[in-house]
Design a protein around this nucleic acid. Structure first.
Lengths: 191, 191
DNA sequence: ATTCCCATGTAACATGTTACATGATTAA
DNA sequence: TTAATCATGTAACATGTTACATGGGAAT
């Protein structure tokens, strides 16, 4: 049911959204907390409309169907936040891979880790650019503040990840050195 | 197919494992990168054995069936690491909720954030305890170094998350203050 | 004209969850 | 001896992916 709440969360910000726009935001890699495939989103939108959580705002000559959240949808969103348990299940492919690189020879392991570094560097740049855009907009309300804050968290996480990946590279290059020492050096564990 | 690789990753460390032991590690909240339900694991183990990636090491009088990885399994694990694309799909219920707390009144939002702080504090303690255990074991090989490093990453992430959650609380308490300033103060974005 | 992006959907398939069944061993 | 934990599995159901179908509008 969490896709439902991801959609309600997006619509709760007030602006009407089409399935296509929602899909674009579910596809973005920088700015999202949930992902879904288009077919899944369209099917869920139909179900949610029938259940009364959202309603059609406008359906123009072209195929586009704009949805808005209903009072019932807002109630459901609040009920979920307060009464449903947080789902802590983890499926992190990137982490699973890094945990397994030791089965490779040094050169190949290094190649895998460097690919991850490249990915995180790109994400770091994308997030920095996004935050700058937001800063220049100078908007300020509850919605904006929370989203802005989330980008700060994501950027901080990327920074930690990059420092850690460099430590991991070092630990492969200097197999004789104490690993605790290597990560102490990156000041990864402050706070 | 990633459950398959999570199982191969666990077995690649060398020790034979039963389905039950694998399930225990998939259930643990501190030390894992992948989760799966028992029924899924048992079904996948049967398929993997038929495909020749793992084989039965021992099947004792009690129901227990111990599996070990085969050469074919190790090959498949290496092939996956080098040739398959990283799956970047994200489904983070906790983050989705934090992104949505602004729909609640201040008091309820605060309650939700504090529940998350409590969860992260517990995880912080659990990870610290685990790292201490590992330090006292004084083992050192490729497998151990990578797992040890992963715990350092997880602990660093928890530390970032806790600092951020406190900033988020502050941003609700002081709605007039600039949000960038609040998060600068937590020194979240160093590096 | 043809290719690309917009926009929504269907259908087949793969993956994952929940409830339940079974029976052994261990601890109170 | 009763409950909890060990240990594996089946079956029904829910969720998610992939390939494909459809047709309009925009750009070259």
């Amino acid at each position: 049911m969490a896709l439902r709440h991801a959609i309600l969360s997006a619509l709760s910000r007030g602006e009407p959204r089409t399935g296509y726009e929602l899909n674009a935001s579910f596809r973005s890699n920088v700015d999202r907390a949930w992902q879904a495939s288009p077919s899944q989103v369209y099917a869920e939108l139909t179900r949610m409309e029938q259940a009364g959580y959202i309603k059609i705002n406008e359906r123009d000559e072209r195929g586009r169907t704009e949805y808005v959240i209903t009072a019932g949808g807002m109630d459901e969103l609040r009920r979920w936040l307060v009464h449903d348990n947080v789902d802590r299940s983890i499926r992190d492919d990137a982490i699973l891979r890094l945990l397994t690189v030791w089965v490779l020879d040094d050169e190949t392991a290094r190649y895998i880790i460097e690919a991850e570094i490249a990915y995180q560097r790109k994400r770091q740049m994308d997030l920095r650019r996004l935050i700058e855009t937001w800063n220049s907009m100078r908007e300020d309300n509850r919605v904006w503040r929370t989203r802005r804050a989330m980008h700060d968290l994501w950027l901080a996480e990327v920074n930690v990840m990059l420092r850690w990946l460099n430590g991991l590279l070092k630990s492969f290059e200097e197999p004789q050195r104490d690993i605790a020492e290597i990560f102490d050096e990156t000041s990864l564990l402050d706070g």
